[in-house]
Design a protein around this nucleic acid. Structure first.
Lengths: 194, 194
DNA sequence: GGTGCCATGTAACGCGTTACATGATTAT
DNA sequence: ATAATCATGTAACGCGTTACATGGCACC
């Protein structure tokens, strides 16, 4: 979803051809490891935007021997970009695959929730270590932007680890107390008692 | 990506028909507001899994007058599910639309980065308030699972707000210091000095 | 007799992916 | 010479979405 708008922004800077746009996007988004974009996505996205009138295609201006296809922004595209920039963004941490796993493990008798949590914790720790290493290797003078990206990743990983601790503590609580009713089970589907 | 595996898990509990699976998934994932799934996605996903041999379709068992299409798990599907459960998960906070906006705003002369940050901060605050309200309205005895979901959202929103503070501080630093070179600009594309 | 939910789909599209294809230029 | 990178695509698929269509059943 964002690639589309980023391309509009890059075209607002200046008209460009596809391959150049791809390089510019990757540079903008923090490098190949952070946000890879395949050439196929660039060209299909650009052509879709040409069809909806956000972008124009100019075949082979100026130079004669060149096969480059130059794209430029239309007023409509500029408006679309401005609209995107003006909006705040929320991501959806509610759609959490790990939460799904956890809920399933509580319903399936042969799955150990504790082990699930341990595996997840190990994965997060490992990634935290990796990212921290990368972060400290960056030069604050020339790569400040990427440091910010890493910092965000670190803060989110730490939040996830704290969240796992919370989950474990809650599960312990439930285990100790007799529990007035079904406790960690999601509501709905009357627990097959009927 | 996760819906597919959650469906396998739900079918491991017991064979079910499509509409029932949808209800079970929504209950599992924390309710309609948290993770809506459209019927169309359920049926197409199930049929794809039938084609790849993870799931079997049984037409109209037991009852006579019923039009329900019952799906059940194959051994292959069970293995697929077990594989998914065993793996740790990382999400990609590197692919961050706000970061893209920020980088673009630093390159485009007519876009104010400070205002961008303020808009984003307001959006995050608003969502934090909304989620906190929802969270405190939940009953810890019967809806503990959803409370966990909300807690995660809150922790991430708080992390994002702290991150915005960091960004602003860095930008201030850059403004004050003469800066030995280009500072917050992503590398690549030699700043059009040539 | 509508309104709404149960239940099952199909069609078309957007985003993103992999795989494939072509041809030019540049580097070793 | 051959390998890498530049440059431009097409085809097919997976996931998810919206919109549309069909038919039953229940409630007011």
């Amino acid at each position: 979803m964002s690639v589309r708008y980023a391309l509009l922004g890059l075209l607002k800077q200046q008209p460009r051809y596809g391959y150049e746009l791809r390089a510019a996007f990757i540079a903008l988004a923090g490098g190949v490891e952070a946000w890879e974009v395949k050439p196929a996505q660039i060209y299909t996205t650009l052509n879709r935007m040409v069809e909806s009138g956000l972008v124009e295609k100019q075949l082979n201006e100026s130079d004669g021997s060149d096969e480059k296809v130059v794209f430029s922004l239309t007023p409509s595209g500029e408006a679309e970009f401005a609209g995107w920039l003006g909006q705040g963004i929320l991501d959806d941490p509610q759609q959490d695959p790990f939460y799904l796993k956890l809920m399933l493990s509580l319903e399936l008798p042969d799955v150990d929730a504790g082990r699930l949590i341990q595996t997840q914790r190990a994965t997060l720790y490992q990634e935290l270590h990796r990212i921290t290493t990368v972060r400290t290797s960056l030069d604050p003078h020339t790569e400040l932007a990427r440091i910010l990206l890493m910092d965000k990743a670190i803060m989110h990983l730490e939040a996830d680890l704290r969240w796992l601790d919370m989950i474990e503590a809650r599960l312990e609580d439930v285990k100790k107390q007799p529990a007035p009713h079904a406790e960690l089970r999601p509501r709905g589907r009357p627990a097959r008692t009927a």
